[in-house]
């Protein structure tokens, strides 16, 4: 019975079925199944999708479809984790967002999915995020890594602004910072004092592991 529900949940994610994922999560919680194991099962499923993408067999809409299905189930399971006071193991906590003035979300969404698949706890703040909002989230989630995206040449300097802002708030040393997006180059990332840059989504996942030494 237990095995079935894990398999069903994995299947729902691999078939991009948002509704099934949410209702299976509810059902499983109702049946008192350990919520951490449910999260693990979903991570396995999303990793399979991520691997398929890496091999060139699956595409961006598949990746995001699976991530959407997982996001539909996650809040239900997390609520239960909170309720029973369990602690979730993860590689680390990452806060992700597209900087202020920039409304491009595709690259960021890819990264979030692949980081989740890898086993990170990912907080996606969305697009058009101001320095203050990044700061708040880093504090709130006790983040290990801040990942910022900027697609446009005009908005790339905003990343420098955020880093400066964190320095002023004495938070710079607390987090590793990785940057990416169409307008960013290796040289630029060094210039603004980021800890790392990678042009590709799978490369960024490796980078995140490196940054926290895992």
């Amino acid at each position: 019975m237990n095995n079935d529900i894990f398999e069903d949940l994995k299947k729902a994610i691999k078939e991009y079925d948002t509704e099934a994922a949410a209702s299976l999560a509810k059902k499983a919680i109702g049946e008192k199944i350990e919520p951490l194991k449910l999260l693990d099962a979903m991570t396995v499923a999303i990793r399979e999708v991520g691997d398929g993408f890496g091999r060139g067999e699956l595409w961006l809409p598949d990746l995001v479809g699976a991530a959407d299905a997982m996001s539909a189930a996650t809040p239900i399971i997390e609520e239960e984790i909170k309720r029973i006071g369990a602690k979730r193991e993860s590689l680390g906590t990452i806060v992700v967002g597209t900087v202020f003035g920039d409304i491009h979300s595709i690259g960021k969404t890819m990264i979030c999915t692949l980081l989740t698949a890898e086993g990170f706890k990912v907080h996606d703040l969305g697009i058009n995020i101001k320095a203050e909002q990044f700061l708040e989230a880093i504090k709130k989630y006790n983040a290990d890594i801040l990942a910022m995206s900027a697609l446009m040449t005009m908005t790339a300097p905003e990343q420098r602004k955020v880093i400066k802002f964190l320095e002023n708030e004495n938070l710079r040393e607390k987090v590793k910072i990785m940057v990416g997006g169409g307008a960013i180059t290796e040289e630029f990332s060094k210039n603004i004092g980021a800890d790392g840059y990678d042009p590709t989504a799978p490369g960024a996942v490796k980078l995140a592991r490196q940054l926290i030494g895992k």
Partner: peptide, 8 residues
């Protein structure tokens, strides 16, 4: 159209 590999 969206390049479904690179996201660009």
């Amino acid at each position: 159209p969206q390049n479904m590999r690179a996201g660009s």
